[in-house]
């Protein structure tokens, strides 16, 4: 797969927690306005890699990264890079719905407010909730607490919150793992909608989900090593979703997608 102008690029990325190397030698190009899925067994470093792209790992004490993670060619870990600016442009949706303990309206408006948004906040909130396919369900109770919504609605609220901060890339860390099948379908439809305007990376344990939504799929695997920690994640194969699931080049990918391990 050749992409001439990737949004995000990882070159020779190694990730450490203290002296323990969690992920090794990742080379990856994330293409614009596509959905890229990260799949792989637990502990292979999918989420760790994902959080590298918006520097959320910085909040973990012992975290350290080597190699180059770049966004439109700019090194995200350069000395003069403000992680806050990075996170404004590269938003994130988490595994568990985590609305703020505020009203639905304030949840969505929060990102815009902290970023000093100048436009019409009401319009932005409505537009973001519409994008997240939640507007019709909440338009009459925007001042109700975010906690009053169901789990699936909360997750769509979190997506609206991310969208309202007007990022270019949306990172999703297993966004449907806490949701029921109907909510999952809604979130997946939403992702296909969103990719018109956003570049999306999704970590998922659900291989059917990857085949349903992703244009490209990266298969991460974990291997046993002699290093401290005993296990290290690496990128096993990255290709069109179709190729990964029907005709992968690596035997280990074939074994994983056909359910022989993981």
């Amino acid at each position: 797969m050749q992409e001439s102008n990737p949004v995000l690029k990882a070159e020779n990325v190694n990730i450490f927690y203290g002296t323990y190397r969690a992920v090794r030698d990742v080379y990856l190009d994330i293409p614009k306005n596509k959905i890229t899925a990260f799949i792989g067994p637990s502990g292979c470093g999918k989420s760790t890699i994902l959080r590298c792209f918006n520097r959320l790992n910085d909040l973990i004490e012992s975290f350290r990264v080597t190699g180059v993670v770049s966004y439109h060619g700019a090194n995200l870990y350069g000395k003069d890079i403000d992680p806050i600016e990075v996170r404004k442009r590269i938003g994130m949706v988490f595994q568990k719905p985590n609305p703020f303990p505020k009203s639905i309206y304030d949840n969505v408006a929060y990102g815009a407010r902290v970023n000093g948004y100048q436009g019409n906040l009401d319009e932005l909130v409505e537009q973001s909730l519409r994008r997240a396919a939640l507007w019709d369900e909440v338009k009459d109770k925007l001042q109700a607490s975010g906690f009053s919504l169901s789990g699936g609605q909360q997750q769509r609220l979190c997506i609206a919150r991310t969208v309202a901060a007007q990022p270019e890339v949306v990172l999703m860390d297993e966004p449907c793992s806490a949701l029921d099948p109907i909510s999952t379908v809604k979130v997946e439809e939403l992702m296909r909608e969103l990719k018109q305007n956003y570049t999306i990376i999704i970590v998922t344990h659900n291989m059917q989900q990857a085949t349903r939504v992703a244009d490209y799929t990266a298969f991460f695997n974990a291997e046993v090593t002699q290093e401290k920690g005993g296990k290290i994640g690496y990128l096993a194969e990255f290709n069109d979703t179709e190729v990964i699931f029907s005709n992968p080049k690596e035997q280990v990918t074939q074994d994983y997608v056909s359910g022989r391990f993981g």
Partner: peptide, 27 residues
């Protein structure tokens, strides 16, 4: 106050003080 919520605030580009003043303390 769950760590998740702090991460969510950082995730939309909030500074540390904004997270504490607007999200963590009110909760």
């Amino acid at each position: 106050v769950p760590q998740d919520v702090r991460w969510a605030a950082f995730g939309v580009g909030a500074y540390n003080y904004q997270t504490v003043l607007k999200i963590v303390l009110p909760a």
